[in-house]
């Protein structure tokens, strides 16, 4: 039998840099290190320091390595709170599609902290930004989410913003949204796609074929 049993289940000694200090100052310094693995470990360890949110958000904006970005966002989700949300929201305007979508997912995990900013986000001039806010809402465990989405379909002039809201309402909409959904396609010259989505959402909300 060649399978061997070793009494140390945990593997070789940790790499050298793991011995560096894990206090706040030391970690903030490692967060800017050249080696991505070192930045990643610092980012994970900084979850223990709620006042590290700003530094983590700043790093995220420049960071290009997926494993480091993911680690930063995992820690930010654990830290939570309004400073994290304020640090993340501007990144929705990033040119980098991967980063934007990582940020959307992180914001979805922070329903309480995100809720005070939703109305402002939905009133933004940039339709792309509003659509990202709607994407956050559609997967947000917040009791007001259906009402916010309903607001969008009543007010927003952008067809894609409305379509994104309709998609969310198909899952979380309540019967109160049905009149607004019924009226929606007309606002967009009865676009066939809009007609299809609203009918689907209405059916899903009613729980039976129309």
């Amino acid at each position: 039998m060649t399978l061997i049993k070793k009494h140390d289940a945990t593997g070789d000694a940790p790499r050298e840099f793991r011995h560096q200090s894990r206090d706040r100052a030391g970690l903030l310094c490692q967060l800017e290190a050249d080696a991505p693995e070192q930045r990643r470990w610092a980012a994970l360890d900084l979850a223990a320091f709620s006042d590290a949110a700003d530094a983590l958000c700043d790093r995220l904006e420049q960071e290009t390595q997926t494993p480091v970005r993911e680690a930063i966002l995992t820690s930010l989700i654990q830290i939570g709170g309004n400073p994290v949300v304020c640090g993340l929201m501007p990144l929705l305007r990033s040119e980098d599609a991967a980063l934007r979508n990582q940020v959307i997912e992180a914001l979805q995990q922070l329903p309480e902290a995100v809720s005070p900013y939703i109305e402002r986000m939905l009133a933004d001039d940039d339709a792309d930004y509003r659509i990202f806010a709607i994407n956050v809402l559609a997967n947000l465990r917040h009791p007001q989410a259906p009402a916010w989405l309903q607001d969008v379909i009543e007010r927003d002039d952008n067809i894609n913003a409305c379509a994104a809201a309709v998609d969310g309402l198909a899952e979380i909409g309540t019967p109160e949204a049905i009149p607004a959904l019924t009226a929606l396609p007309e606002r967009f010259a009865d676009d066939p796609f809009m007609q299809f989505c609203t009918q689907t959402a209405i059916r899903r909300i009613q729980g039976h074929g129309a």
């Binding site: 599609a97 991967a98 934007r100 979508n101 959307i104 997912e105 659509i131 990202f132």
Partner: peptide, 11 residues
């Protein structure tokens, strides 16, 4: 699509 969770359309 472009904007999607976990992996965007470009990637």
């Amino acid at each position: 699509d472009i904007n999607m969770p976990k992996m965007d359309g470009y990637t």
